[in-house]
């Protein structure tokens, strides 16, 4: 009998710390039956957007007929520069108002809801151009992110006993997140003294202070070094495993391929393709969209034809634009075969 006791597992519930327990594999499995086409309906959407249109003067930046974001998975939003991804983020989160259209989060319409209420309802975003609070310390930045703070009400703020306990709890939570995002050593430094990549990390960690249901990351990996990218990828995946939904914009196709369960492609304001990463990246419409805007991406590796075409273009440019070389060194243009080797 003693043997029985030692081999018995720890009491249940030890691992289940997340609030909303979503079965990740089930959520991903559910996507298997979703058709690979723009605007495809999802079995359990957390965000549904309809007929969203935003114009800047004559330019239509966003014109999304219908799109749904599946709950509990990582969705990548890709598209060439100027496709309208950031604008779409701004519209969904209340930072910008569309000319028309309606969208909902957890079934509740967010049309006309101010940005701070959107955030409170559980949909927290980060910015492409990082927004850290420079003259606050890293730790203070994190604490601002916590929701429902008693001390943020004017009348209670003056009397520390009202909020001290909560502040302590928030600090512990912040420290845990800073540790996870490798910023713990910078805890007491001004956020303005952080490097570009560190700011990205801080912004992501700060967004998590609010325990969001949906995390929206606008180019989270831009400027982050490759080694850290790997661990960040792990963090993003762990968000999903905690039961959160992640929607992110990214240009790094390796990352998109690696972590997204579903990819939505935008070009010129419209959703032009949807599907799992491998199918989307082979999609001719997607390749056209990227090529059409002269956007050389890792995507080009998908197609040898494409690569050759770009190479040929570049060579033609070099050959045409350069005056006759004066010395040996100015002739790097070798044959395509040599360059590849």
């Amino acid at each position: 009998m003693p043997a029985d006791r030692t081999s018995s597992p720890a009491p249940g519930g030890g691992g289940a710390t997340s609030t909303a327990v979503v079965d990740v594999s089930a959520a991903r499995a559910a996507l298997r039956d979703v058709p690979h086409e723009p605007g495809a309906p999802k079995p359990d959407p957390i965000v549904v957007a309809d007929g969203i249109r935003r114009t800047f003067g004559g330019l239509t930046a966003v014109d999304v007929a219908h799109v749904e974001i599946q709950r509990g998975v990582i969705t990548g939003l890709i598209g060439p520069n100027g496709a309208g991804k950031t604008t779409f983020f701004n519209l969904l989160t209340g930072f910008d108002r569309p000319d028309q259209g309606d969208w909902s989060f957890n079934g509740k319409s967010l049309k006309g809801v101010p940005a701070y209420r959107v955030a409170r309802s559980g949909m927290v975003r980060t910015f492409q151009l990082t927004k850290v609070l420079s003259k606050l310390t890293v730790l203070e930045n994190m604490r601002v992110g916590a929701t429902g703070q008693q001390g943020e009400r004017l009348l209670r703020a003056m009397f520390a006993p009202f909020w001290r306990g909560q502040e302590r709890a928030n600090t512990e939570k912040a420290d845990a997140l800073l540790d996870r995002f490798l910023l713990i050593k910078k805890r007491e430094d001004f956020a303005g003294s952080l490097s570009g990549g560190q700011r990205k990390l801080l912004e992501m960690a700060r967004a998590l202070m609010a325990d969001p249901e949906l995390v929206m990351l606008d180019e989270p990996m831009a400027g982050v070094n490759p080694a850290l990218k790997q661990s960040l990828l792990g963090h993003v995946k762990s968000l999903r495993d905690e039961g959160r939904t992640v929607l992110f914009v990214e240009h790094d196709m390796d990352m998109v391929r690696d972590i997204s369960d579903w990819v939505i492609v935008m070009a010129q304001g419209q959703v032009i393709a949807e599907g799992p990463p491998h199918s989307v990246m082979g999609d001719q419409r997607v390749i056209d969209a990227y090529l059409g805007s002269h956007h050389d991406q890792d995507l080009s590796v998908e197609s040898v034809d494409l690569e050759n075409q770009i190479l040929a273009e570049v060579e033609a440019e070099i050959a045409g634009g350069q005056p006759p070389a004066a010395d040996e060194q100015a002739e790097p243009a070798a044959t395509p075969g040599d360059q590849r080797g």
Partner: peptide
């Protein structure tokens, strides 16, 4: 009063607004 307010989370939000109000908005503060 200023001291008591500015050391509190309320004051922290104010300083955050001074630095970047969109960031503070994105964290759910009015």
């Amino acid at each position: 009063v200023v001291w008591a307010l500015m050391r509190s989370p309320w004051g922290r939000v104010l300083k955050g607004i001074r630095e970047d109000e969109d960031a503070v908005r994105s964290l759910g503060k009015n």
